[in-house]
Amino acid sequence: MYARRLRFTQEPRTVVRFPGTGKRESLSHSDRTHLPDPVIPGHTYQDVTVAYHLATRLAEEPEAGRSGDDDADE
């Protein structure tokens, strides 16, 4: 993501969720240019770049008969 100007009215709150069943192992990381962590509400940031990386995988086999899709039996 690139923005010439970016301003936050309040500190952002983010959540990542994975639907389905099974235990997961996940990693995430963001590379930011001209954008501190945390951001300051009301401050205008210029020439901002954010690259977000996310990787996830099932840590174990799903239970027998469970695909994680609620409509699988229809």
Rank of each mutant, 00 (worst) to 15 (best):
T33H: 10
E11W: 00
P41K: 06
L58K: 08
E63V: 03
D71W: 15
V16K: 14
P19S: 12
S30Q: 11
L54K: 01
V16I: 14
M1N: 09
A64L: 10
R17N: 05
T33S: 00
G20K: 07
F8T: 01
E63P: 04
R7V: 00
T14Y: 11
D73W: 12
Y45P: 07
Y2L: 03
V15Y: 14
D47I: 09
R7F: 02
L27M: 14
S30M: 14
A55Q: 15
V15H: 15
A51K: 09
T21W: 06
E61D: 15
T44Y: 02
T33K: 03
S26H: 05
S67R: 05
L27R: 10
P36L: 08
E74C: 09
I40F: 01
E74Y: 11
M1P: 09
D69P: 13
H34W: 00
R66G: 00
R5L: 03
H34Y: 10
L58Y: 11
L58G: 10
S67W: 04
H34R: 06
A59Q: 03
E60P: 02
P41L: 08
D69S: 09
T44W: 05
V15L: 14
S26M: 12
Y45C: 01
A64M: 14
G22E: 05
Q10W: 03
G65Q: 09
P62D: 03
S30P: 06
R13Q: 13
D47W: 02
V50Y: 00
A72T: 11
R32T: 02
D69K: 12
G22F: 06
T56Q: 08
R7I: 01
F18N: 13
D31T: 12
V50C: 04
T14G: 13
R24I: 13
L35P: 01
E61N: 03
S28N: 13
D71G: 13
G68A: 15
R17G: 07
E61K: 13
R4H: 04
E63T: 02
R4G: 06
L54I: 11
G20C: 04
R57E: 12
D47H: 05
R7K: 11
S67F: 03
G42E: 12
Q46H: 14
D47G: 02
A51I: 08
R17Y: 05
I40W: 01
E25W: 03
Q10D: 12
R17D: 08
E60A: 12
D71T: 12
I40M: 01
R66P: 00
T49N: 00
A51S: 13
E63G: 04
R4E: 11
P62G: 07
V15S: 15
E25K: 06
T56G: 07
D31E: 12
P62I: 10
I40D: 03
R13K: 11
P12L: 06
A55V: 15
T9I: 12
L58A: 09
D37Y: 09
P36T: 00
R17L: 11
D69E: 09
Q46N: 11
V15W: 04
